[in-house]
Design a protein around this nucleic acid. Sequence first.
DNA 1: ATAAGTAGTTATGTACTACATATCAAATGT
DNA 2: ACATTTGATATGTAGTACATAACTACTTAT
Lengths: 230, 230
Amino acid sequence: MTKKLPNNELERIANTTMADVVEIRLREYLKTSAFKPGDALPKEIELANSLGVSRNVVREALSRLRMLGMVETKKKRGMVLARPDILGSFERVLDPAIIDEHTLRDLFELRLTLEVGLADLLYLRKTAKDIAELEQIAKSQKVTGDKQTFRIQHEIAFHGKLYQMTGNDTMSRFQSMLLPVFGYLVTLEKKPIIGKVSHLDLVKILKEGTKEEFRQGMLQHLEHHFKKIQ
Amino acid sequence: MTKKLPNNELERIANTTMADVVEIRLREYLKTSAFKPGDALPKEIELANSLGVSRNVVREALSRLRMLGMVETKKKRGMVLARPDILGSFERVLDPAIIDEHTLRDLFELRLTLEVGLADLLYLRKTAKDIAELEQIAKSQKVTGDKQTFRIQHEIAFHGKLYQMTGNDTMSRFQSMLLPVFGYLVTLEKKPIIGKVSHLDLVKILKEGTKEEFRQGMLQHLEHHFKKIQ
DNA sequence: ATAAGTAGTTATGTACTACATATCAAATGT
DNA sequence: ACATTTGATATGTAGTACATAACTACTTAT
């Protein structure tokens, strides 16, 4: 007895579960209903009845939204709409070990792009205090010297400080989240490659030079990285 | 009858539920166990017993990991480790309506930074075909003319094409995900602001000029945006 | 009457059971 | 040797029950 082949479409997408559907429906509901953060939402039972699924399914969907920070729940208070941390969800999946080669390269290029574009924000917001701190970091390189792990730590500290100096918290966090990815890439290199422009050179430009000079300096500092991605 | 006060520790600020704990434990487990994508994982019941919680709680945690794309599940096959789509999770929470002002500004600056830094990748990968297409987009502006929505559509098309020309899929997707955010910001402006350097000017530089000229051109093209963020 | 304490109410958090469904694997028949 | 059937199994969904925290309203003592 041949079945009717319910969905003949190459047995496609059908892997969507009820929880997936409810998640989407809820997200739409939140967006279209013009709720503001802090507003109370219907209770689980009501959602379940309204959607025609068990409370269990609703909870699985809500569990996802909770993780993303889109809603918060308290014992009797019910649920309220919340502001998600847009980078928090990003952070969870950023594990170099499971990201494919292609995406790793993309992320690497993304950071290079940011670094080159940083000059404008830096010159807009740099302060004498920040530059002094940056210089301290740059100088500390000479002391610690040659060991691989120290070198990486130093790279992280210097470039991280640069991002922090832009006053852009989101960008700064974003960069620090990308660090494990680059740490992973750097360890693949055999020996340290010193660019023509050192960290101290960059600090000097920041103190005395122009935006354009800094950008050119950064380009040369990252030169060997750019060569690799060609 | 007074109970024994199970945990006296100032009753933990944290509202952490079992599902939260299990989610974290599972993520650690996946990272430390050196699984590769495609490897099979223990079944729900085993995890539940092993962790001392109900299957329900395990499913809520797994539901989150499933959404992030870290694991995939099939009916009898069980669970397998999967490659998460690193931008997918980002996309879900990117709703301009619920992102706070401060973060919106940060994202705006992030895009400006990328745009300025784009020159190097562009000159590394641009092709005659891409430039021709870009020129078509730039020219189409003159035709459609003045209406607000058309202008925004055109902006999106032009800058989107630029990102696509970098050959960096991740960056391109990232930019397109940020579009709703900027669409939101742009609609707040009363009237269109035309920079000194038009899209057609940028195309011309791409065809005949150098990296540095393009970067300067882009800076001037975005000039009024940079003025706003000071 | 005000303050403090107490009991009830309610929505989420957790556990458990039961069954549906899809899929793999072995057994069976031709 | 191949196709079909049958069973076993892990996830997906439903439903019930109770624990827990937090809000409400009531009672009681000063």
